[in-house]
Simulated assay, not measured.
Amino acid sequence: MDRKVELISFGGIETLRMAEFEPPTPAAGEILIRQDAIGVNFIDIYQRTGLYPLPLPAVLGVEATGIVEAVGEAVHGLRVGDRIAYAGLPGGYATRRVLPGWRAVPLPDDIDAKAAAGGFLRALTAHMLLTRVFAAGPGKTLLVHAAAGGLGSILTRWARRSGCIVIGTAGSPDKAEIARANGADHVIVGRDADLVGETRRLTGGTGVDFAIDGIGGTMLARTLDCVRKFGTVASVGQAAGPIPPIRAEDLGPIRSIALARPSVMAYAAEPETYRAASEAVIGALRDGTIDGRIGREYRLEDAPRAQRDLETGATAGCSILVP
């Protein structure tokens, strides 16, 4: 019998429970996969708490790698036994699942399944931020919050590959060392650091071209002061809690900055975009931009603990579940 982690109500980690199930037969356009490794992301926590509500009961998890076990009609280019990765669709906390065929990204034999599962969604997010939200390139200066975290690590490495100058933030000296190892040119250390003052000092008083905030809470308001005139801020999460309202006057005309609130789920829902971005992600896994290191590995039944560790900042890098 297959197993899944089911969300029965919105709230804390106690709302997650193990359940057994019979996997369905794939319909036309679908495939059935046996999952090898499953990524754990903040969106899983947002869905669990009801910030991004799903119909209940629900199975969380929006990225994984696996092996194709059955192929429905009208699916082209996939065969039983193929290794695949996917991102952008809940239902991942399970030993098996059905998936629309177009979501399956062929996984080359030289790419580790765990590395792909832990970094695929975050890498898609980085691709979205550094191509569609902001055109990253040589000489551009970026501020990346939590540069030792799962997303921050990939963003830092990808931005440096693009020729950007990266200022990272880290909550502790140990995490600052990880951020530097990721390629950050400068790291601002400590939750109470003078973020604005240090950023302005490091940029000669002008501010960064692009700032990416996945922390939320009061951090977004502080981040607005770190960006140059006509720069851009992207808000991609709220690990520290709800974000107080931002007024139009907080953005301009004095600051003259742009604020984006992009969704990687919406980005990955565009089939053509998803295919192109996935090719870039596979390339980044292959050339080492995504280094493949997993911060924490948990058993499927330990999904509540994995979410708690991510939520409390006890992890660095990416975390995965192994069925």
Rank of each mutant, 00 (worst) to 15 (best):
L155Q: 03
E279L: 14
E30S: 10
A303N: 07
V264M: 08
A193L: 06
A280Y: 00
V196I: 15
L99E: 07
T232H: 11
A159N: 08
P55G: 05
T125L: 01
L32F: 04
G12I: 03
A126H: 12
I38W: 12
T218K: 14
L259Y: 15
R103N: 04
T206G: 00
E30V: 04
F120I: 09
A316Y: 02
I33L: 13
P23C: 04
G39M: 12
E311Q: 13
F134M: 01
R160N: 03
G50W: 06
H145W: 01
C318D: 07
R160M: 02
A266V: 14
L300C: 02
Y274C: 11
A277C: 08
G101M: 00
A176V: 11
V264P: 01
K140R: 15
R3W: 06
G190W: 04
G288V: 10
E177P: 00
D209G: 08
G295E: 12
T131A: 05
K114E: 13
A19L: 08
R261C: 12
R160G: 04
V196R: 15
L142A: 09
T141M: 12
T125F: 01
T15E: 10
M265F: 10
D192T: 03
I33F: 11
D82K: 06
P106Y: 10
L143P: 01
Y52H: 12
F210C: 14
T65K: 01
G168C: 11
I320G: 00
Y93R: 06
D192E: 09
V40K: 02
D302A: 15
H186E: 14
T15N: 15
T49A: 14
G77A: 10
D36A: 12
I188P: 05
V133S: 13
V75L: 11
R103Y: 15
M18W: 01
A234C: 07
A234W: 09
R122S: 07
V40C: 13
F120T: 14
A115N: 10
L220C: 11
G66Q: 03
G317S: 09
T203G: 02
L251A: 03
M128P: 04
L251C: 08
V189P: 00
A146T: 09
S256A: 15
P244K: 10
L321R: 02
P323M: 07
P100M: 01
V236Q: 13
A85C: 03
I8Q: 05
A248C: 09
D112N: 14
P173M: 11
R122G: 03
G217H: 12
I13H: 14
A87F: 09
A314C: 10
A260F: 15
I246T: 14
D185T: 12
A316F: 06
V98I: 15
G295I: 08
A123M: 15
I243Y: 10
A115F: 13
D291A: 10
A176R: 08
P244C: 08
H186V: 09
G205W: 05
I45W: 03
P262W: 12
I13K: 03
F120D: 07
S153P: 08
A117P: 07
